[in-house]
Amino acid sequence: MYQSITKKLTLWVAFLSLLLLAGCTGKQEETTVAQSEATTETAKQEVSLDGKWKIYNLRDSLESILIYTNPVDQFDGLLIMLIGAEKTTIASEITINGNTAEYHGAYDMNISFEAYYDTEFKNQNISKEEGLKRYQSYVELLFKKFPDAVGGLSEDKQTLDGTIKNGKVDTQAKTITFTAPIFFAGDIRATTSVLSDKPVTYSYSIENDILTLTLSGNDEIYNLPETIVLQFQKVQE
């Protein structure tokens, strides 16, 4: 009798211990999950707009620009420009400090020219030598016409390396404005106003460590609505 009661009590104690252990384990797991979620949320919130941002998903950004630059019957030209720009881009980055921003871009003139020649000069019986001279002059004049443009063609004219300074950041409106468009090559610029000297304003948003710039409007050539989307990733320093 006594042994039976003792055995039952022992089983109950063991059962209650298991329940207690399971409860503690569950609470520990819930706490761990909650801490992990809180850490992730904090990490999201701590990504500051200040700092350096490097181009992310280059092809997607280029496609959002180039899809509007050629009519349907020049689709082959668009692909040539897209592939050329991917190969030619050396740098594309934004540095933000408080209410100011700078864009730095650089690209290989020779690779860029190959794509430009095939789309612009090849069918005009213009030699590559003459086409290159025209392209270099065109790029240099285009870049220098903007008041906040610093840099330009290298001495050997092999590279364009330039910075657009004095960009304005409006954290209330969530916009970044440059006096010149963000560029990837001499003929690939993130703007709907190809021939305009007006400042270009991009709306921005941040998700995790990705800065997305968006520009919407009607292009000046075909008067069609377009939306350009550029993405930059935060550089951890």
Rank of each mutant, 00 (worst) to 15 (best):
Y202K: 00
I221N: 13
L132Y: 12
G77Y: 06
F15H: 06
N125G: 14
Y107H: 08
T119D: 09
K27Q: 03
Y56G: 07
I67H: 03
W53P: 00
R134M: 05
E120F: 10
I221H: 09
L215S: 04
E114K: 11
K54M: 01
Q158I: 02
S36H: 12
T227L: 02
N99D: 13
I55R: 04
L215P: 05
E29Y: 09
L79E: 08
S112H: 02
Y204G: 02
T179C: 00
E93I: 03
L9I: 07
T159H: 10
E155H: 14
A173N: 15
I94W: 13
D170K: 04
K27Y: 09
T95K: 03
Y116V: 02
I80V: 15
T88I: 01
S127D: 14
E155M: 10
K128I: 10
Y138T: 10
E226H: 00
G26S: 13
Q236F: 10
T40K: 15
G77A: 05
G51V: 02
Q35N: 10
D156P: 03
G51E: 00
Q158L: 14
K144R: 14
N218G: 01
I65D: 10
Y138R: 12
K87H: 04
E207H: 08
Y138S: 12
A173W: 02
L20A: 11
A115Y: 01
W12K: 08
Y138E: 11
S196W: 00
V200D: 00
L211C: 11
R189M: 07
S216V: 01
H104T: 15
N70K: 14
C24N: 14
F146W: 13
E93R: 05
V13C: 08
D161C: 06
I65E: 11
K87P: 02
E120Q: 14
T6M: 12
V229R: 01
L79V: 06
L19M: 12
E120K: 12
F183L: 11
L62R: 09
E114S: 08
K27W: 06
Q236I: 06
S17W: 00
S92D: 04
A185I: 03
S92C: 02
E29V: 13
T10R: 09
G51K: 00
E30W: 10
T171L: 01
Q236R: 06
K133G: 09
